[in-house]
């Protein structure tokens, strides 16, 4: 696909495809991600939006109020990939039979619970079968809808309600799952990882590529949750920036197995800068816990090196 130059102001002037009046928390990163992805749809193209159960679903289609300006289907928690596979296949058949004429795109959203964990099998199936759809994970690193329980996307040492920090616990024991790599290993045409940076160029371009590349595409978007992460709600853009500048959340894409790093910080910031504003990591800054921070930094470094290697192949 020919890559269009990003005209920020024109992009922002496009008709809004997520209506206000949904019930997501004030300052939610999830709907910032949704709006950014939907802006990449070309005007005139229709879409069917899928959604795994989660905050986004219960808040954006609370009967009889739908926030979606496009057709929308929520089915259950673990099956967004399969549900949209069915929609996309129906489109192909009805088009072949001449029952519909319009161009439709298929985009489904899931949180990390619905994507990394309970919906992984269904997602894997949809990716492997290479349906022409985009699966977007808005990753806030825990099951926020049910009250901040750990997921396999939760970073190590995070304080969650199922990995509470206590006298005998430093929070979550395990490292987060690297889902983008797992999906890239499905040999899909496009995988992109992004978050909210500056004028959203990186995310917009990745969303446009994902939507307009034929086949199954996957976007992993870090979408901070002010309640779960316990930072000042208005600080979201700074949190995202620190995630990228510390190399905790690198911006990269994988096109048909070819890995590309989209941004390399001029000076990699220490991971403390990303962790410090978040209440879920408060315990790491207590005297005597320096080794935990060190371990966290080592894990970030190791993953960054792995990524650099993948991108240099």
């Amino acid at each position: 696909m020919e890559r269009k130059t990003y005209n920020f102001k024109e992009t922002m002037s496009k008709p809004e495809r997520l209506a206000p009046g949904h019930r997501m928390c004030a300052g939610c990163g999830g709907t910032i991600a949704v709006r950014a992805v939907l802006r990449a749809l070309h005007e005139g193209d229709k879409a069917v939006i899928g959604n795994a159960t989660g905050c986004l679903e219960v808040s954006s289609f609370m009967y009889p109020y739908t926030a979606w300006e496009d057709s929308y289907i929520h089915n259950a928690f673990e099956n967004a990939g399969a549900t949209l596979s069915g929609v996309e296949t129906a489109y192909n058949v009805l088009k072949k039979k001449g029952k519909i004429n319009d161009t439709y795109k298929f985009i489904t959203f899931g949180g990390d619970g619905g994507t990394y964990d309970i919906g992984l099998q269904s997602l894997s199936g949809a990716m492997e079968r290479n349906h022409d759809l985009v699966y977007v994970c808005y990753d806030n690193g825990a099951y926020m809808n049910t009250g901040i329980q750990r997921s396999s996307a939760t970073p190590m040492y995070a304080d969650t309600t199922t990995t509470p920090v206590g006298s005998a616990s430093d929070g979550k024991l395990q490292n987060r799952k690297d889902l983008a790599s797992i999906i890239a290993s499905h040999d899909v045409p496009y995988v992109g990882q992004s978050t909210f940076i500056g004028n959203f160029k990186d995310l917009h371009q990745k969303a446009e590529k994902a939507i307009y590349t034929e086949g199954a595409c996957f976007l992993n978007i870090m979408a901070p949750c002010p309640r779960g992460w316990r930072y000042e709600t208005d600080d979201i853009m700074n949190i995202c920036k620190l995630a990228v500048e510390t190399c905790y959340w690198p911006l990269f894409e994988v096109e048909h197995g070819k890995w590309t790093l989209n941004y390399e910080p001029k000076k990699k910031l220490p991971i403390e800068d990303f962790l410090r504003p978040q209440g879920r990591f408060k315990h790491l800054f207590k005297p005597g816990n320096e080794h935990l921070l060190e371990q966290f930094q080592q894990e970030v470094d190791r993953r960054w090196e792995d990524l650099m290697f993948m991108c240099s192949r």
Partner: peptide
């Protein structure tokens, strides 16, 4: 026949995809 077969990875997904297709307007 014109039917599209989806070789899903589980029965949960077979019914999920069937429902997606039906909601989309197909006989599934």
């Amino acid at each position: 026949i014109d039917t599209e077969f989806i070789p899903v990875e589980s029965e949960h997904s077979s019914m999920s995809a069937t429902l997606g297709a039906s909601a989309a307007g197909a006989r599934a």
